[in-house]
Design a protein around this nucleic acid. Structure first.
Lengths: 209, 209
DNA sequence: TTATGTGAACTAGTTCACAGCA
DNA sequence: TGCTGTGAACTAGTTCACATAA
């Protein structure tokens, strides 16, 4: 079934399922039905079964899913059974907050490099001890530290240039916090974290309803 | 046409269009075709025309759209012709970064209140001068400052409780940065900004491709 | 009996293709 | 002629409903 095209939404939901499952483990729950898990995640039970069906059969009919096993399997699917090396570009307020954010490390994402165009910052270290390099060092540092994902926290006008540099440095996945659309060549995955868009959604909702 | 159910994705794209249009204004461009705008936003031209058609007719056949007018109209649709009062809950690294973030204020979003459960923080002021209150004051402060949107930046285990308090305080829209699914009653809009999910998407991409 | 796994039915969202108008 | 506005065709994604298996 792996050859089927898997909806992007399915991957996003798998990520949600891992959280719910981790919560269940904390509560000592060992078995869960798609119905129960669906409630926790706010989705349809059939949706969960469909999502999982893309990758195999993980449940026991008449019983449900073994929580620990399912969590392990989903993490494996998502590639969360290993650690990932990240680089942050732009260590302003937001960038620093992200590096310090425990949710990254807890999940196996490690910041191994930092970059900033500000000559006052480049050459210094973050509070975490992480060295800040100028963007001109991106290629060598990224290869050296084996950076696999780049996180862009620069002002929007520099985001595209930084993305290009990251791609040149061999980075294949980019998480973009700058409020702008980034163009990247085939084979490079860009995800946008765009809270101004989310706020605009809220504004629209409050305006119409 | 206003009575038609409008896809959530349409609203999100409208937000993207405003950015592109602001860029065009900066570049002194006065007229733009759906084709050109589509290129800038990375979408299909028909998509743009469809999106706009939900709200009326904004273009001139054979010509295109007048940039300034269209931007004004879209902002009006989204409710961005006015300011919005926000409260931040949880002023850790991320919360502070968000309050300081210029992109909010530039777009008409104003933080008018801050809350934190930490007794070391409550009673103090943020660097911006914003007073930090304990969560117990939420109801009175939110009504007093006319808070319309709440931004949750607490650890995930407190997010639901904070959401409940915000709702009790009359807040109808919530932007949730905590990596957990929040339940809210009918009539309350919750948007999630979930970068761990986005990272997991990248991990999946790098793992499979 | 219970809950998974899955084809079929349905729903939503996108793109096409062209009529209509400046 | 050129580009918008929009019904129709298409594509993707979700939910239903039930056969299947513990």
């Amino acid at each position: 079934m792996k050859f089927l095209k898997i909806p992007a939404a399915t991957i996003t939901r798998l990520s949600l399922y891992t959280r719910a499952l981790e919560g269940l483990i904390k509560d000592q729950v060992t078995v869960v039905s798609s119905k129960k898990l669906a409630e926790l995640c706010g989705v349809n039970p059939a949706q969960i079964r469909k999502d999982l069906a893309y990758f195999g059969q993980f449940g026991v009919r008449g019983v449900g899913y073994y929580v620990k096993e399912l969590l392990f399997d989903i993490k494996k699917i998502l590639g969360l059974h290993r650690e990932w090396n990240l680089a942050i570009v732009g260590v302003g307020n937001l960038g620093c907050a992200l590096v310090a954010h425990e949710n990254f490390t807890k999940q196996g994402y490690r910041f191994v490099a930092a970059f900033d165009a500000d000559p006052m910052k480049a050459g210094r270290k973050l509070v975490t001890g992480l060295m800040i390099y100028p963007p001109s060092d991106m290629q060598s540092v990224c290869r050296d530290k084996q950076v696999e994902m780049g996180v862009i926290c620069t002002p929007p006008e520099f985001a595209q240039d930084i993305a290009n540099r990251l791609v040149d440095a061999g980075v294949k996945a980019i998480l973009n916090f700058a409020p702008t659309q980034i163009q990247a060549p085939e084979g490079i995955k860009v995800e946008n974290v765009d809270f101004s868009v989310k706020l605009d959604n809220l504004a629209y909702y409050l305006t119409t309803s």
